[in-house]
Design a protein around this nucleic acid. Structure first.
Lengths: 146, 146
DNA sequence: CTAAGATAGTTTCATCTGAAACTTGATTCA
DNA sequence: TGAATCAAGTTTCAGATGAAACTATCTTAG
């Protein structure tokens, strides 16, 4: 029994990372879910469409840029289009592709949610020293390069 | 259009954290899922039972120590008990409570998976400098204290 | 050209998840 | 006591998820 070397979950890095990540994401998500009936998946799709506005991304480009699978993106888009937050038309010259854009209503939601998300990010960083903030960015760059 | 200030998802900390956390957790989980038909939930339950061996934890103590909800724990335990990896008996003096322990088979699985998990953790840390490793621990202590 | 293969996106299916309701047993307090 | 409340754990239900199959379209090799 002495030689089992049990894993100490509360010191195990992957576990701690997942706890932290879930807490942070859910704190943000809870707000926009209540206020806008918007899932995290949907929000990420909207954020990418906002960022690459004017390019008329296709669904698979959205999937690539959000690191979500195409099924999740397809379903998020169905809801977003139904809610008139995203417009979808067919691509000239390739009828398989869709051309996606935020609608005016979509932009309105985005312009409320984005500052809210950034505020959460700031309050998270505010708990860290300047050195730790720098280190965190360096760590993320090394472990999960974009 | 210029003043929409879109969120840059790929620089947004909560997003990057969730990408990193998912990648790390899934890399480990994939191994023990294939080899032992063990979900991440089940593994976490086993890890906690291993760590607090001899105390005969109840299901809600397991839930508290894994930060999972009681429904998830209940279901994981059903599977673990069926697979004879965990033994469950009633608590003397409180028939609501269960007393949970890893079985010999459970320990055998634990003793294979724990080193495997630790190896993943080590290879993750190995990508960071000593300073960054220290900083990561400090950051986790501040942002998600145990 | 056209058959074979690749790509975009949706649907299906089986599983996972969490909130709420429920069951059983313990506790409290009048 | 015994009614009301509380705690442990399970079940139910409704939604989320992801792999695989499928449809439609486009590309390429012969």
């Amino acid at each position: 029994m002495a030689d089992h070397a049990p894993l100490e979950l509360e010191r195990f890095l992957p576990y701690r990372l997942s706890i932290l990540s879930n807490r942070v994401s859910q704190a943000i998500a809870r707000e926009y879910q209540d206020r806008f009936d918007l899932s995290m998946t949907e929000w990420r799709v909207m954020a990418v469409l906002a960022r690459y506005d004017g390019e008329g991304l296709s669904a698979s480009e959205v999937a690539a840029r959000t690191e979500m699978d195409k099924v999740a993106v397809s379903r998020a888009l169905t809801r977003l289009v139904e809610a008139r937050r995203v417009s979808r038309r067919a691509h000239d010259g390739d009828k398989r592709r869709s051309v996606l854009r935020l609608s005016a209503a979509g932009w309105k939601v985005h312009d409320t949610v984005a500052p809210l998300a950034r505020a959460h990010e700031r309050s998270m960083l505010a708990q860290l020293s300047a050195d730790e903030q720098r280190a965190l960015l360096a760590i993320l760059d090394k472990l999960a390069p974009v």
